[in-house]
Every structure is written in structure tokens, then in C-alpha cells.
Simulated assay, not measured.
Amino acid sequence: MEVVGVIKKIEAYWDKRSDTFDADHDTEDVKAWMDSLANLLGPETNRNVLDLGTGTGFLANMTANLGYSTIGIDISKEMMNLAVKHAKNLRSDAIFMEGSVLSLPFMDNTIDFIINARLIWTLIEPDVAIKEWLRILKPGGKIMCFNRMKEGVGLNIGKVNIYEDEEVDKQLAIKEARMEELRDLLERNGLSDVKIQKIPGLTRPGYDYDPWFVLMGTKVLTECSLIS
């Protein structure tokens, strides 16, 4: 199956899941998330944030309310309809737009932070995706991929036939990737200072889930960027 066909099927799946997505994932301590994001992004809120696979705007609305200029992008229109509703309720000025993480509608070297949550395991053509993210990232900018992982192991999705289509599911190249494989994905595509950091306390007590980790890397500063 060609990539375009795979993306269409994935889009249809998340459109269908949109009505129940928030209820299924209502386990998060938003205050803890806000504190963690503020710490990771730093105090200079004049920087911009791109939230990939924004879904219902969970991260994008938080970073916007922290003061960062934020855009959320997703292939699912139905998910983003909910993101816009949440933004109004939260008085967030995040902007939402349709797009694929494999081909982003932004110029080179224009984004300070690329963030995402629960996206990394869904990637098809992960090397293509990371190269595309790196293209639009400013020198010195950072990529941060949040996901639950099994400590000391890596992604632990444990789902079979996720998209109810074997041809689509076979495209999920890294859904069970180990931590060292995830670090290698970023390093081989040109990111530096790559690390995986555990972020405790993001899930409200009483929920038995793998802990949250963030996979991070930085775009190397070039001599030209240092001079400018």
C-alpha cells in the first residue's frame, strides 16, 4: 500500500476515535504537565512551538497558555475540531491546522520547539519524518517526543491490528522500539545531545500505566547560525 493510502486510513481511524479519545485518556495531571513543559521549554516564551499529531490539543493548549506561540497540526479534522473547542474553553490562543508529519507546511529553520505526545509509535517512515522535522527546526532548536515507555526497555504498545488493517499496521516500523533504537533514530538523522528522560508524576494517582518519558534531541548550531 502506498504511503498516501496508509495516511488516509490512519486519518479515518483517528476521526472515528475522536469522540472517545479524551475520555479514554483522562488520566493526566495537568498541573504536573504544565510544570514539566515550562521546565523543558525554558523561561523565554518569545519562542514558538509546533505540536505534531496534536489530536485534541492536549499539549498545544498547555504551551499556548504558558505563553509560547503555538501551532498544533494533525491529519484528523475531527480531532482538531475538539482541539479548537478546548482552546476556547481554556482561553488558549493556539492555532490548529491540518497536515502530515511527513510533509510540513513550514519554511526551513523556522521552529524553535517541535513537541508531540503519543505520536512516535504511530510513525510510518520514521526516518523521513525526523528529517522533515529537522528541516524546519531552527539551529539550536529541540525536538521532544513524549510517550509512555516500559522502564529500561522502551515502547510497550502491546496492541495488535491497531488500525484494523494488516497492511497499515505493518507500516508502524517503531511501535515496539527499544530506547536505544529511539535514540539512534534521532542521532542518525542529524540531532545531537539525544537522550531519554523519565518524567514522573504526570499521571494522576490510581492509574496503573507505564511512566512517561521524553525522547529529546537538538539541532546542531552551524557556524553561519552562530555568526547571524
Rank of each mutant, 00 (worst) to 15 (best):
L134F: 06
I95S: 07
D93Y: 02
T110M: 06
E132I: 14
E132V: 14
R91V: 09
A129D: 02
T122F: 10
L134V: 13
T110Q: 07
I124N: 02
F106A: 04
L119S: 07
T110R: 00
M97Y: 05
T110L: 00
K142H: 08
I120F: 13
K138Y: 00
L123S: 07
M107G: 14
S100A: 11
G140P: 05
F96I: 06
P105D: 05
S103M: 08
V101S: 05
L123G: 13
L104M: 05
D127T: 15
P139H: 02
M97R: 11
L104P: 07
K138W: 04
N109D: 07
R135N: 05
I136L: 00
A94C: 08
I111H: 00
V101F: 04
L104Y: 03
L119P: 02
K131F: 07
L137S: 02
W133V: 12
M144T: 13
K131P: 10
A129S: 10
G99M: 10
A94I: 01
W133E: 07
I143F: 03
D93K: 08
G141Y: 03
I143T: 11
G99K: 03
M107I: 15
D112P: 13
E125S: 09
E98H: 11
I95Y: 13
N116I: 07
D108A: 15
G99N: 06
D93R: 10
D108R: 12
D127R: 04
E132N: 11
E125W: 02
E132L: 12
L102T: 12
E125P: 15
D112I: 15
L134C: 11
D108E: 13
I124G: 03
P126A: 07
R91W: 00
R135M: 04
N116Q: 15
P105L: 05
P105R: 12
N116V: 14
K131D: 06
L137C: 09
M144I: 08
E125M: 12
K138R: 12
F96R: 06
L123P: 15
I124F: 10
K131H: 08
V128H: 08
L123W: 13
L104V: 05
